[in-house]
């Protein structure tokens, strides 16, 4: 990991990050529509094709909104949610990691951005009142409790950069030593599993016009970012790491990483459609989700702990040393 971050790599990484963000945001409605269609296929209903969700968002965006009470605040919440979701998408590795010297966020920041986006998405329901207020408060409470439930997972990732963490995981095979992190990925996946389309349908029914389109896009983005995160943690080996060789192997790895990402998404869509088959009331779904996330995270942490306790401290110190070295190098380079 003692990689010299040159300007060429810097711009290449910026380009890759922009590409990743664009791909995530653009693919989110497709993925959502895909899951919806798959759920319909499993339950024997006919639903819209996968692109229908995207068309719906596009159509809603051009419509005039009805002015309701509290519309200004809910519009603000929708915009904020979309910004946070895109910010989280920008930080999530889709097919490539960033090299060591590149400024990368921690896992906690990523999760906090996603949870914040979820909270903002639940806000319009509470603001507009009506019959769905209770469900809105439940959604807010569930999303607020999500961050405490994620504590074991956050502890597993530690305080290091997410990219560095994934670069360590990259060396472990998911079928062997990296198996506890598959459990961690499952815990992350369950965050979205019982989020449920039913609640989403209720929520967006209150909005209209461009707010509604933004709400739908932000919700899809949050879902896809969680899924991508879970896939990254479960199998980090598919991500490309710049600086291993030249630029050409990196590009090839990026292409392979993109293909693996699509494969992971298809598996996740199947599993998501399967979880949609479970019929649970909204409150119960929230409880099941929180408990599953917390307990699975705890189990993953415990399983990984025995293996990680010895080496990880060494890795952590090594990575911190790396960071310090790179920081020193940056400091030395910039003046």
């Amino acid at each position: 990991m003692t990689h010299d971050l040159t300007w060429g790599w810097f711009f290449a990484c910026l380009l890759a990050l922009a590409l990743q963000t664009g791909v995530l945001v653009l693919a989110a409605p497709w993925f959502s529509g895909w899951v919806n269609r798959l759920t319909g296929r499993l339950t024997g209903e006919r639903r819209f094709p996968a692109g229908g969700r995207w068309q719906d968002s596009h159509h809603q965006f051009r419509r005039q909104g009805l002015r309701l009470r509290g519309d200004g605040l809910s519009g603000l919440a929708c915009r904020g949610a979309l910004i946070l979701a895109v910010f989280a998408a920008c930080m999530t590795p889709v097919f490539t990691l960033v090299p060591a010297g590149f400024p990368a966020p921690g896992f906690f920041l990523l999760c906090a951005a996603l949870v914040g986006a979820s909270l903002l998405l639940g806000l319009p329901l509470v603001v507009q009142g009506g019959t769905a207020t209770l469900a809105g408060y439940t959604a807010l409470l569930a999303d607020a409790l999500l961050l405490p439930a994620l504590v074991p997972v956050l502890v597993m990732a530690g305080g290091q950069d997410f990219s560095v963490f994934l670069a360590h995981l990259r060396l472990l095979s998911p079928a062997g030593e990296g198996a506890p992190f598959v459990l961690m990925g499952v815990a992350l996946f369950l965050v979205t599993a019982w989020k449920g389309r039913l609640a989403g349908e209720d929520l967006q029914g209150q909005l209209s016009g461009a707010d509604r389109a933004l709400w739908m896009l932000a919700a899809d983005c949050v879902q896809l970012v969680w899924i991508t995160l879970a896939g990254d943690v479960a199998w980090a080996g598919s991500l490309a790491l710049p600086g291993d060789g030249g630029a050409e192997p990196w590009l090839a790895q990026c292409l392979a990483g993109g293909a693996f990402w699509v494969a992971k998404l298809s598996v996740a869509a199947l599993l998501l459609a399967g979880t949609h088959l479970m019929v649970l009331t909204y409150q119960r779904r929230a409880r099941v989700r929180l408990a599953a996330v917390f307990l699975l995270g705890l189990l993953a942490w415990q399983v990984a702990y025995a293996g990680q306790s010895g080496p990880q401290t060494g890795n952590k110190t090594a990575s911190m040393q790396d960071e310090q070295e790179s920081a020193w190098r940056d400091d030395g380079a910039t003046p």
Binding site: P174, A175, G176, E177, A179, P180, V182, L183, V186, L299, V303, G307
Partner: peptide, 11 residues
């Protein structure tokens, strides 16, 4: 420690 060992309790 393999993936199957992890998956068995989940199943």
């Amino acid at each position: 420690m393999t993936l199957a060992v992890i998956l068995a309790p989940l199943l």
